[in-house]
Design a protein around this nucleic acid. Structure first.
Lengths: 128, 128
DNA sequence: ATCCTCGCCGTACATTTGTACGTGATTCGT
DNA sequence: ACGAATCACGTACAAATGTACGGCGAGGAT
């Protein structure tokens, strides 16, 4: 409901790093960035500022250093982002996407087991 | 490889309609738009033009009417779009997304069966 | 012949996104 | 105590995005 402005691609990358770190300064986020995806320190800074403005993170000063922490949970962002994608690209049907993910991405043994369990649970829940 | 510029959200919606219609004029795409997601005729026109420029569709004149048809297949766009999303939002791990989709979207009985089959097939394939 | 309508095409324009610099303040090393 | 490093913060700016208007030509109605 909170009708946040959606995250852009770049903002997502930064948000993900912040979720991993839990709480971090600009520098920490910048350093945690995958080396092949190098961006400037101030670019990260800008993204964090924008994430703050959009309400995805909060920030405060600790001494003279600004510290950022996530405000919304990954699951929330996933929901909003993915649902939007599913709507636009598949008109709301999720299965084609699931199929793609399973077939193409490396879902390892453990993941397969987990999926299977999930299916079992769901089947139990349905009308039957 | 063909390194097309990525589709924006709006472009995706239009592309999806065109995939459904297979071949359509601006007006047809415009009319096929879900009523709650109403956009102007010329907005659709602009999107189709941009899809053409980006190489996702092709267009030609039939009499004095321009007709558009998809050039790249849905699966291709899905791959490019979703893989990018998985990278940015999950650092490449697909399972969290799959879990979300299965739990939250309506996966009906038939879909469940299909998924189960898919899992079976994959398990057979792995090294074990 | 005239006028209306439809569609193409060029153009527009505010906002968002990606990417970053420069300035002024602060602190650390020596 | 002086220069070097470090930050926050304001600002910049081109490209992409979302959304749309207006002119002009072709075809149909009167």
């Amino acid at each position: 409901m909170t009708d946040r402005a959606p995250l852009s691609k770049g903002e997502m990358e930064v948000a993900r790093v912040l979720w991993e770190l839990g709480r971090a300064t600009v520098r920490q986020v910048h350093e945690a960035f995958p080396p092949e995806r190098a961006v400037d320190f101030s670019t990260v800074q800008t993204y964090l500022r924008r994430l703050d403005a959009k309400g995805y993170v909060r920030a405060w000063l600790e001494g003279r250093t600004r510290v950022y922490a996530p405000l919304v949970k990954p699951t929330t962002v996933i929901r909003e982002t993915v649902d939007d994608l599913v709507d636009r690209l598949f008109g709301g049907r999720a299965l084609p996407l699931v199929r793609h993910l399973i077939e193409r991405h490396d879902i390892d043994e453990g993941d397969l087991a987990e999926l299977r369990e999930l299916l079992d649970r769901l089947e139990g829940q349905s009308d039957a």
